[in-house]
Each structure stands twice: as structure tokens, then as C-alpha cells.
Simulated scan of single mutants.
Amino acid sequence: MNNAPQDNQKPHDRGSAQQSQCPVRPVRSGSSAHTSYLVTGYAEARQALADPRLSKDTAAFFANKGSKRRLHPAVSQSMLASDPPQHTRLRKLVARTFTTGSVAALRPFIEQVTDDLLDAWPTHGEVDVVADLAMPLPVTVICELLGVPEDNRSDVKRWSAELFAAGQPERIDAASHAMAEYMVGLIAERRERPGDALLDDLIRVRDGEDRLSEEELVSLAVLLLVAGHETTTNFIGSALLALLRQPADLERLRREPDLVPGALDELLRRSSPVSVATFRYTTESVTLGGTEIPADTPVQVAIGVANRDPARFPAPEQLDLGRDATGHLSFGHGIHRCVGAPLARAEAELALRKLLARFPNLRLAVPPEDLVWRPTRLVRGLTALPVLV
């Protein structure tokens, strides 16, 4: 389904005039006769994200639907598309890598990568923040964690971008196979020459304790590789744009950089890097916001719109860095809340701190209305963010 407007705005840029009157409503999937339900209210979205009656078992839903898609199972049947107990088991295997303490130990490395990227910027002139910082920073970090060689990282970035190519199912499917086949080969190489990367840890779990099947190993590695940078890339660009459009806030954070960590929640709320949560469907009849959703029906949780529900966040269109925005849904909610959230926050925090400290004259190089958003329904990110330094 693609309900995205045809201009360069995303749904949550437009506000939600019907939000309070209709926080849950049926929608049609383009030319399809099938109905799904769109959740835009904050309370209803939070309930939907945590309700065990909304399954994420994509394979089970589509098993008898006659789908013509050919996504690689490593993508279509990942941890992200599973329910307990399988989800619980898989998540435990990677959760320790992304705890607050583990990420704190990674901060010196993240800081060094950020400095290295910014060292390559000119002292004066135009730079694309997306291409020259927001993308390579999280890609470098997650690839180092997993043990992906530097020579392969451009391919990883390309395949990952293609996985979110809205309205191009064949391109998405092809990218899923390319990514999975690459990971199969990398796993084979790491078995021959093991090291101490996260991928090596997962291989040892598979080969030593036999807690992972080979298919689960490949799927988990692909998921970590993609999810480990997509959200952060989009957020860094969107957050910086929001600050550049409010110079007083930008200057305050430059003067008081210790305020940056606290500002992240409001920036995440107002500039959510996720527009719509990943696929869910009802396993039985569920009532959300007074609306009954029949069993076996897809449910789309519009995170970006829910984060702007005035019933939860007054004056939601305003970026207010003094607001208590904890509770926003940009990292999800419930058992499927983004396991990599601490890493994403650390990368975004250090990127913003360094940008503000090193480039006091940072400003947009083009009018905001000329910026282009990625043509994808699931995530929200700029294709480029040209700035003058």
C-alpha cells in the first residue's frame, strides 16, 4: 500500500485534521480490493504496537494469499516479522550488543568515525550532509560491528536503499536476494577466518550452541545490517534540517551542547525517521479507538502522525526543545521496540554535537521547499541535505 502524497511532503508533515475524529479508519491499498486499517491517534498507536493480538508473522499471513512477491526469506521472515517465542529467543541473542552500557563503550569509536568524516569536509563551500555524514556514519559503525569489509559497504548501502523503493516490488525483491546472498558468502568467509565481530558471535551461537538455524543466522545478520543504519541516516538529516529552520534553537544547542541529548526526543518526535511501522495483522477481532477491526486484517500504525497527536503533544507541529517528548513512538513500543535505539541515539547525538561545534556558520544551501524526501512509505528521510559551511 502507498498512501504517500505525490509531492515532497510525507503524511506526518501535513498534520492530521481527522486525527481526533477518526484515529482508526479503513483504507484501501491502491487498486487492491483488500482493506487495511490506518492508525493515526497516539493512544491507539501505542496500544496497537503492544497488543499481542496484532501479529507480525508476515509469512503466516501471506501463506494462503497467493502473493506474487519473491522477497528472500532472510528479509520476509526476519526477527522483525516474527512473534514470541521465536522473536523473544532471537532478540535476546543481539540485545546485549545494544544495551546502554555496550553503546557507551562504543562512543569513542563513533566519535572517531564522526571526526574522520568531518575532517574531509571543506572549511568553506557546499556539503551534502546525507552523503557525507548521515549515511556513512551509521553504515561504518554497523559494518564494523558486524565485520563487513570496507570494500563491500557501498554495495550494502545501495541494496539497503533499494529495499525501501516504494512502488517498485521487483527492485525491492531483487535487493533482498542480493543482500541475503552477500551475507551467506560473508558468513562462509567468517567461518574460515573467524574474528571478534558481532557476526562471529552469531556464528558461534549457530555452530556451537545450535540455538540458531542457518536461515535464522542469515536473516538476523541481514536485519542488523539494514536496520542498523537506515533509521539513523534518516534521523540525522531530518533533525539537522529542523534545527537549521529554527536558528535560535540551533544556536542555543551550540552554546550549550550538553542539551543535545535531551533535545533528541523532541527531534525524534517532530522529525520521526519512521513514517509507518512494519507490517502487522489482527489474529482476532480487535477494537482500537472505538473501531472494530476484523480478524485477519492488516493494520498500519502511522508513527509519524501519532507523534503529532495534539491529544498527547499540544501544539504538535511546533518543534519545542523544552518539551518533555519522552513516550514518542519513533523507536516503536512494546516487545518490538527498536533494539538498536541506544546506538541510534548515540550516533545522532555525536553527529549533532560535532556539526555544531565545528561549523559555526552552518546553513542551508537551498530553500527548504527544494529539498526532496525519499519516495518511500515506511521511512522518512531526505535524499540530500546541501548545506554551506
Results as ranks from 00 to 15, higher is better:
214 E>S: 08
298 P>E: 03
192 E>W: 01
167 G>V: 13
49 L>Q: 06
288 L>A: 07
65 K>V: 15
67 S>Q: 06
348 A>M: 09
101 G>F: 03
317 E>F: 05
282 T>A: 08
284 E>G: 06
185 G>H: 06
124 H>S: 14
326 T>G: 08
277 A>I: 01
266 E>P: 08
89 R>E: 01
388 L>R: 13
41 G>N: 01
106 L>Q: 11
89 R>W: 02
159 W>L: 03
314 P>T: 11
66 G>R: 01
39 V>T: 01
266 E>D: 14
100 T>Y: 07
334 G>L: 13
90 L>Y: 01
228 G>V: 04
273 P>F: 00
22 C>E: 13
261 P>G: 05
145 L>W: 02
175 A>S: 09
263 A>I: 01
188 A>L: 04
283 T>Q: 04
219 S>H: 02
354 K>M: 09
233 T>K: 12
324 D>T: 07
100 T>W: 07
339 V>Y: 09
316 P>H: 12
347 E>I: 05
13 D>T: 00
188 A>E: 12
333 H>Y: 15
190 R>H: 09
247 P>D: 08
287 T>A: 06
51 D>N: 12
340 G>T: 06
35 T>G: 01
84 P>L: 04
28 R>D: 10
354 K>D: 09
53 R>A: 15
9 Q>P: 02
185 G>E: 07
232 T>V: 14
161 A>M: 09
301 V>F: 05
350 L>R: 03
367 P>Q: 12
66 G>Y: 06
376 T>A: 07
333 H>D: 12
37 Y>Q: 00
219 S>L: 06
207 D>T: 10
226 V>K: 11
216 E>L: 11
16 S>E: 13
360 P>D: 05
64 N>G: 14
281 Y>D: 03
326 T>W: 02
26 P>G: 11
101 G>I: 06
116 D>G: 12
379 V>E: 03
176 S>H: 13
12 H>R: 03
336 H>M: 09
322 G>F: 03
224 L>P: 01
321 L>M: 03
70 R>T: 15
175 A>Y: 05
175 A>Q: 00
73 P>G: 01
380 R>S: 06
358 R>S: 11
305 V>I: 15
257 P>V: 11
133 L>G: 02
277 A>T: 05
328 H>N: 11
366 V>R: 10
374 R>S: 10
318 Q>A: 14
64 N>S: 15
197 A>V: 02
251 E>K: 09
127 V>R: 00
62 F>A: 12
291 T>D: 04
332 G>I: 09
324 D>P: 05
13 D>E: 13
160 S>D: 08
287 T>I: 05
203 I>E: 00
380 R>G: 01
53 R>K: 12
181 E>R: 13
68 K>C: 08
34 H>A: 14
80 L>P: 00
318 Q>M: 10
10 K>Q: 09
178 A>Y: 10
69 R>S: 15
47 Q>D: 14
31 S>I: 08
352 L>I: 12
297 T>A: 08
367 P>D: 14
297 T>V: 05
188 A>C: 04
114 T>N: 13
133 L>N: 05
206 R>N: 15
160 S>L: 11
336 H>F: 07
264 L>W: 04
